[in-house]
Simulated assay, not measured.
Amino acid sequence: MTDNLRELRPRAPESEKLTINLGFVDLGRIDLMVRDGFYANRADFIRTAVRNQLERQGDAVRQSVARKQLTLGLSQYTRQDLEAARDAGTPLHIHVLGLASIALDVTPELAREAIASVEVLGAFHASPAVKAALADRTA
């Protein structure tokens, strides 16, 4: 029955993979916490530690987001969005804290015509050609 199902558009990943280096003692302490059942695994410990630290600094983060006029969360830009900005003569200034995603059918030429600047704190998903075309406009 599921042979007939197909995805209409690819889903954006919900997270980004990070690689960190830790000292052996810190790593051993994490492993001890995992072994003793406080956390399911190392990744669970690290995610929890990051969330706790972000929560502690929540007011500072909120103030910075407001001051820098960042869009919080997921911002998707379609070919139609960029064509509209280009045709209106109002290039986009993309300022995102989270994930900014430019559709795969956007050409490098359209991206350059429609986007004046890109600042993404988090992840920026676009085709390699579009990223290269915007390299001089990306902070």
Rank of each mutant, 00 (worst) to 15 (best):
V96G: 05
L18E: 06
M33K: 13
A43D: 08
K17C: 06
E119I: 03
D3A: 12
I20N: 06
R86M: 12
A126E: 03
D87Y: 04
Q69L: 03
I46P: 03
G98M: 07
L8Q: 11
A43L: 06
R6L: 08
R9E: 14
P91Q: 07
V118W: 00
A12R: 08
E119F: 04
A133L: 05
A40E: 05
D36L: 12
L27Y: 13
G28K: 12
I94Y: 03
M33H: 07
V96F: 05
R6D: 03
Q53N: 13
E109C: 04
R42P: 04
R11A: 02
S75A: 14
L22Y: 09
E14I: 06
N41M: 01
A132L: 14
Y77H: 10
A129I: 09
S117C: 00
V50C: 15
R42Q: 13
R56A: 15
A126Q: 04
S15F: 01
P108H: 05
R112Y: 00
A84L: 15
L22N: 05
F124D: 01
A114H: 07
T19G: 11
E7H: 01
D36R: 15
T19C: 04
D59G: 02
V61Y: 15
G23F: 13
P13V: 09
A85R: 13
L8I: 12
S64P: 00
K68M: 10
R137T: 06
A139W: 08
E109S: 15
H93I: 10
A66I: 08
G73A: 13
V106L: 11
Q57C: 12
E109L: 12
T138C: 03
D87V: 06
S101H: 07
Y77F: 15
E55K: 15
L8N: 07
L18T: 05
Q80V: 11
A43S: 13
H95N: 06
E119C: 01
H95A: 14
L72A: 06
G73L: 07
L92N: 02
R51S: 15
F24H: 09
A88M: 14
L99C: 10
H95Q: 10
G73W: 00
Y39R: 05
L8K: 11
V34C: 01
E14D: 02
D31C: 02
A12N: 06
I102K: 05
V96R: 02
A84Y: 05
E16R: 14
L72R: 11
Q63C: 02
T138G: 01
R29D: 11
Q63D: 14
I102H: 02
R112F: 03
V96I: 09
S64K: 09
I30D: 04
